[in-house]
Nucleic acid binder design. Structure first.
Lengths: 216, 216
DNA sequence: GTCTATATTCTGATAGAC
DNA sequence: GTCTATCAGAATATAGAC
């Protein structure tokens, strides 16, 4: 394909490396679903290849090996997390900030359930491939946000609770709707979670968290 | 072994099938940890055998095959869940009932983290081996407890919230401390969760849930 | 860049001695 | 009941034609 750039005049919206990116993305998408469902060890290259509708050998052309592919999927997922993490900014009004953060987290669960499940599976397995991320970006982010809560508590804007537990509760509650979907569907007698049902869940969580923390 | 009971007079504290039970339990325990860490597909009989310190063939002597072993582990786990589930009885005072239930759930997460993780992994994978349980015991239990909440709401003992979301929030928050332990340890700068730290977490959850639901 | 064929290792399961 | 040896199939990964 690179030859086309040098031997022919490019016609149409051709971009160098476009096919490469497309193929990579296709494989990454299939791999995310497979890893999310079966974990690193349980996932097979064969199934990923079938799901992505490419020959198995092509995966090895784009990614060094199974671990390399997993790493690439994980990196994609972490980038998505980070954008949601940053929603929790140091605004003045805790009700507004936390409300928007809970909405953002729930929206992420709804639109990226595979990413949420992949992350959960990795955590449950002891996070063997996430130690670098956890020790660096995550650790820093967590400490910064903790100080925001401490500030609110000092200003009597919320109850004197350990902020860590509040954050854990928000994460646990919002991720639950993606990770434990089978349990939720049977409990609610439905076959799929609608956008409206997600919104109702978000409202319940916001009610309990905000009121429970003495905010507003 | 049964022959010994009929052909000889039993001496000492011998019980028929005792060795059998011991070996079975040893294998089940190792299998629970392995399945919890790597999921059904990711777990290997070899690793389970090594962890249980028995030859691989012995596992096939006690259990029909990998799926049979997994089913036995899952059944063990579900029995444990059920005992905790029943803690949420129809007592009159919601603060007392929910408080004790949250304590019981947190205690379960602390003392049976592998069981919690196994259950979580199965759910994230779409609960392919739990459909019978979910459709029967769980479904019934959930509906019964929902009606208790509805009763409390009618009596103005708590806010008018969808009880399902309250239960999901309790489950999510309490299980999080077992399932997402790596994240918690790094956030709290500790190497293991003490019993005291679990109690603090339980207190925070109780504070937020009870106050957030307008109970007490 | 793509794909078929294959090398090599590993996994679940069994046979059969003890 | 226990264990060694081993099979058939599946897994990751690579070689090499196109």
């Amino acid at each position: 394909m690179a030859n086309r750039m040098t031997t022919h005049i490019s016609r149409g919206p051709y971009k160098p490396g476009r096919i490469r990116e497309q193929s990579r993305d296709l494989i990454l998408q299939a791999a995310e679903a497979e890893f999310a469902c079966h974990g690193f060890r349980g996932a097979t290259m064969q199934r990923i290849a079938e799901s992505a509708q490419v020959p198995k050998a092509n995966i090895h052309y784009y990614f060094s090996n199974k671990l390399g592919l997993y790493g690439a999927v994980l990196e994609n997922t972490l980038n998505l997390w980070d954008t949601v993490f940053n929603e929790l900014s140091s605004h003045d009004d805790p009700a507004d900030v936390l409300g928007r953060y809970i909405d953002a987290k729930m929206n992420f669960s709804r639109t990226n359930p595979s990413a949420s499940r992949l992350f959960a599976k990795e955590m449950i397995s002891g996070a063997p491939h996430l130690s670098a991320y956890l020790q660096q970006d995550y650790r820093l982010w967590f400490k910064q946000r903790m100080s925001i809560f401490d500030c609110w508590i000092a200003q009597k804007k919320m109850d004197d609770l350990d902020p860590a537990h509040v954050i854990f509760m928000i994460w646990a509650s919002t991720q639950y709707y993606a990770d434990f979907e089978p349990q939720i569907l049977i409990a609610t007698d439905t076959q799929s979670q609608s956008e409206a049902s997600y919104q109702q869940a978000a409202n319940s969580i916001k009610h309990i968290i905000l009121k429970g923390c003495g905010i507003g």
